[in-house]
């Protein structure tokens, strides 16, 4: 250590209150890159793109892999490639900037600090995302880290990786439907009415569950829970109160509107098919 005086090992003040949110596309892309990695490579490394939301959450929305070479103590990233790809990506969506980098494998490894250093020069406080493609750590396969400096006096000793909470809720993916994203092959996309049917079945199942629960509570088989009770009563109360006549009128009016539209479009369709048959059959002139 430098000249005299007590030096203090400074730990970072209270953990950073960063959180990260991840778009399912990123996970898909990382997996795809991993599957397509070069023969000898053990992991893939790449850049994360996204933005920092006003409340400090890092929103990771896109990513791309960057080729790299790894030997025992050295990591060489293809920086040209990284910059080319970045400028291409920004042509499409200028709002997406670098927010960090990802690597497959579980947790932080020796080379990580070097790469993190590189990304720190691109963007202040990058996020490091690790995706464990070997599923070694049960239940926690995707982690996010930020680096904090550990210094002794004025002297910087090392960088410490600190894990930050990661939001993995996937509204985007939900819209597509897990059914088609979870399994390895789906032969056909679900249609309008099939989807509707599935939804109704699920709704019915839920209502059944509620009934069962209420019955159980009433008969004393299950200990009542005030919170659940409030939820149920809120739900029931959210149904607007109508007189039966008013409700019937409303429903019937809607029915009639829709029938009219349906009628119109069916007529148009019939007209079209009629015209088509006439057109091909008739020997004009």
């Amino acid at each position: 250590m430098a000249s005299g005086g007590p030096t203090v090992l400074q730990f970072p003040q209270a953990s950073t209150n960063l959180t990260a949110k991840i778009h399912p596309l990123v996970i898909f892309n990382i997996c795809d890159c991993f599957v397509r990695r070069p023969d000898q490579a053990e992991r893939v490394i790449g850049t994360l793109l996204g933005s920092v939301l006003p409340d400090g959450t890092v929103d990771i929305r896109n990513c791309y892999a960057v080729p790299h070479n790894e030997s025992s103590d050295q990591v060489a990233l293809d920086i040209d490639y990284h910059h080319n790809m970045l400028s291409s990506q920004q042509k499409v969506n200028p709002r997406e900037a670098i927010v960090g980098w990802f690597s497959t494998g579980s947790g932080v490894t020796g080379g990580s600090a070097l790469i993190h250093d590189f990304y720190s020069r691109e963007v202040p406080n990058p996020v490091h995302l690790t995706v464990d493609t070997g599923f070694k750590d049960e239940g926690r396969t995707i982690k996010a880290f930020v680096s904090v400096n550990l210094s002794l006096g004025d002297q910087q000793l090392a960088a410490q990786f600190q894990e930050i909470p990661l939001d993995l809720r996937m509204v985007e993916a939900e819209r597509v439907g897990f059914d088609i994203l979870k399994t390895t092959t789906v032969d056909r996309l679900p249609g309008d009415l099939e989807g509707m049917e599935a939804t109704m079945e699920r709704l019915l199942a839920l209502i059944d569950d509620v009934y069962k629960y209420v019955d159980n509570v009433v008969e004393g088989r299950v200990a009542p829970d005030n919170n659940i009770g409030r939820f149920i009563s809120d739900t029931v109360a959210s149904l607007p109160k109508f007189s039966p006549q008013a409700f019937n009128k409303l429903v019937n009016d809607s029915f009639q509107d829709h029938s009219l539209v349906l009628y119109l479009s069916s007529i148009a369709r019939t007209q079209l098919s009629l015209a088509q048959t006439l057109n091909t059959a008739a020997q004009l002139l």
């Binding site: 996970i27 898909f28 997996c31 795809d32 991993f34 599957v35 493609t133 599923f135 239940g139 396969t141 995707i142 993995l168 996937m170 993916a173 897990f178 088609i180 994203l181 979870k182 399994t183 390895t184 092959t185 789906v186 032969d187 056909r188 996309l189």
Partner: peptide
């Protein structure tokens, strides 16, 4: 037809 790699399928099943 939609297809996914086994790896992705595993991840989705685990995460959701």
């Amino acid at each position: 037809k939609v297809s996914n790699s086994a790896l992705i399928s595993a991840f989705m099943t685990e995460l959701e």
